[in-house]
Design a protein around this nucleic acid. Structure first.
Lengths: 204, 204
DNA sequence: CAAATATACTGAACGGTGTTTATTTTCCAA
DNA sequence: TTGGAAAATAAACACCGTTCAGTATATTTG
């Protein structure tokens, strides 16, 4: 009786088709500009069909985020090669920025866009970023332990470092960073310079 | 011939009515959930009327942002009292966080929400945040000059400090900060602790 | 194999959105 | 008082996320 199994496979295939089209379109056009109807058109099904596989747009976004976090994890795995923890922390920082540069729209829907946090008090459910954060935490903890960075508490250190990188990227993504006007001159502030300066400040 | 003047006054009054209702409703319900129709209802005019005073929702948001930045400027003016530049920088940090805590929804629409950046390449037009950023820059420049913080370039320093605070707040606003799960224990990371640790790290 | 049932899919609708247009109402000058 | 400008609006357009009644297809049962 392989029918149930085949049906399950077909169901998974359809979810793949939907999520693949969604990722492609979100990346190309931006989350807000892509409608369920657009996605349905792309995969040549009726809009209502999508609701047989995803209960709403939020649930679809959640799956897209899962995919994006897997991509980020791969990106980290490829780039975190150094043995020295401080060097590895620097690699992490550059890998994080590199991921953003290659996938700005993905970064937006992973970390900035409001959905799918609608359901209040359901922070528990948001586990997509956990493994990436764990990687950061353990690395930072090692740096704190070996006293190569000027932080004392590993939890606060990890969150602070993430917050800095995220803040920089968020400002860049909203064009607050590109140009910085002063009375006398106009300066370009780059993410790269800021990261370098931060690493200098944080290092022991 | 005071009629033209009165008309102008009436026009300004109407824009005030619209922007006041918009701010109130954005703060109460969130930008995305407030429609032009809702605002029109509130001020007891037809939706189309709003388009006689604002060309689109983006332009209205732009005015709301202007108001919000004025509030932030006041907030800074009230709280930046110390003579010592480093102390004043700390006051700035706490004032920034305090503003966010008192007006999270305003913070969102000032710094995070995607609109009104639709018009590509119009970064020139976004002047709302300039005076607040100038205040930060000059203060940080003084700190760099007097060598009380570990940054060398004032431009990079100002942007980095802002990025850190903004990153922290952005993560908090999207519930990424509240709880931080680890294999063994669950920890609360607070904005306050992170700011304190950052100031310690940055101080010379 | 045929009938009954379960599954997959869809057309059409609901109630909303931002925005535009044609029309009506209001106001002011001649 | 009346003609024309200015202000306000009702109605429509083209979308949106989502639901539901109904149809087509596949599977199971008699």
């Amino acid at each position: 009786m392989g029918i149930a199994e085949r049906k399950e496979r077909e169901r998974a295939d359809m979810r793949r088709r939907i999520v693949d089209a969604a990722i492609k379109m979100f990346v190309e056009e931006g989350y807000e500009k892509v409608s369920i109807r657009n996605i349905a058109d792309k995969i040549e099904y009726s809009p209502a069909t999508i609701y047989l596989y995803y209960k709403d747009k939020d649930e679809l976004l959640y799956d897209v985020q899962k995919e994006a976090f897997a991509t980020l994890a791969e990106h980290f795995a490829r780039n975190l090669t150094a043995a020295d923890p401080l060097e590895r922390l620097e690699q992490l920082a550059w890998a994080y920025v590199g991921f953003y540069r290659q996938n700005p729209e993905l970064y937006d829907l992973m970390f900035i866009i409001k959905a799918p946090m609608n359901a209040e008090g359901e922070e528990e459910k948001w586990k997509n970023g956990d493994s990436a954060y764990d990687a950061l935490y353990h690395l930072v903890a090692e740096c704190v332990e070996k006293k190569v960075i000027r932080f004392k508490d590993p939890t606060i250190a990890a969150m602070s470092i993430w917050a800095f990188a995220h803040g920089l990227i968020s400002l860049d993504l909203r064009s607050r960073l590109k140009v910085c006007k002063l009375p006398d001159k106009t300066l370009n502030v780059s993410i790269d310079d800021s990261i370098r300066a931060y690493l200098d400040v944080v290092r022991c």
